[in-house]
């Protein structure tokens, strides 16, 4: 933008209209973002419960209680397990599907649509469908697994399998999203690079992948990884619909117990402390992502 002389009529107009245009957004930022954030941090140092008359400052007691709480520890462990399971499959699965779909010409659109369907659909509705599909007596999955020799497993009610089942549904929802991001990355690779590689002697698929595809997808891969981590970290809908944290707390995740503490038991101070922990995780990931996006520029 061209710098304008301060005090010129144009500069005064811009200053006035800029302020007018920005005011509503700024107001919203203060009311919806900044003020709640300040309240949140303050709240995390109190024993506030919704409707309570007296509020006491208790310093870091909430945090101490939280990290000593086996439920919180379990939810943290469950969440990380969930992320650890979803992340590699959703990222490399998405990459694999994108590579295969990208090579198709006539059938490309059909595959794209089918793999992307779960992304646009309402997860709560589709989770009820999954629940029905996984129903031990009425759904098709249990008999199918039994026929394959796995025995009759009630995937959602078995503590050994429930979290994994949720993760599979998470992958089911995420893989098409990642596929589309990878497809965009793949189409951005100039065809001439593959041709140059062909002339240079890259005769094997492995050579083309390692010399061209993988390095040029680097920024996309980082982006997809961070995004998938954030999404997996915030797993909530499927827990509410399918397991409510059970069986035996095996699917209690961070966001789910935060929801319970804050909005079911109304232990606001404690939940606020938990939210601060969540915020730290997500902010860390966001900073990582910002770094990645900066790096992306270098390649252009």
């Amino acid at each position: 933008m061209s710098p304008r002389a301060p005090g010129s009529p144009q500069a005064r107009t811009e200053a006035r209209w800029g302020a007018i245009f920005a005011a509503p957004a700024l107001l919203l930022i203060v009311v919806i973002l900044l003020a709640p954030l300040a309240v949140l941090v303050a709240l995390s140092a109190t024993d506030y419960r919704l409707g309570a008359i007296a509020v006491r400052m208790i310093g870091l007691d909430n945090y101490a209680a939280m990290f000593a709480d086996p439920v919180f520890q379990r939810s943290l462990r469950n969440t990380f397990l969930y992320v650890a399971f979803v992340l590699p499959v959703a990222v490399f699965g998405g990459l694999g599907v994108a590579l295969l779909v990208h090579a198709r010409i006539r059938t490309r659109t059909i595959y794209e649509v089918i793999y992307f369907l779960p992304v646009t659909s309402t997860l709560v509705a589709m989770a009820t469908v999954w629940q029905f599909m996984l129903h031990p007596t009425l759904g098709p999955v249990t008999p199918l697994l039994a026929d394959l020799g796995f025995g009759r497993i009630d995937l959602l009610n078995d503590p050994d399998f429930a979290l994994g089942t949720l993760a599979l549904i998470g992958i089911w929802q995420l893989i098409g999203f990642n596929m589309v991001l990878f497809l965009a990355g793949l189409s951005a690779i100039p065809r001439e690079l593959y041709e140059a590689a062909a002339l240079d002697g890259a005769r094997y698929g492995a050579d083309r992948f390692l010399r061209v595809t993988w390095p040029l997808l680097g920024p996309t891969t980082m982006f997809v990884t961070v995004t998938s981590t954030v999404t997996a970290f915030k797993v909530f809908d499927t827990v509410v619909v399918l397991t409510r944290g059970g069986p035996l707390g095996s699917t209690e995740t961070l966001l789910y117990i935060l929801y319970l503490e804050g909005f079911q038991y109304f232990r606001m101070g404690y939940a606020a402390a938990m939210t601060v922990v969540l915020l730290v995780f997500l902010a860390g990931l966001s900073i990582l992502q910002a770094r990645v996006l900066e790096r992306k520029v270098h390649y252009a």
Partner: peptide, 22 residues
Amino acid sequence: LFGLVLFGLCIPIQVPALPLYI
């Protein structure tokens, strides 16, 4: 303002949910 926007990009709804609810 732009700094606040970039900051806001890192904050999901779950973070201000509690104070907003109160």
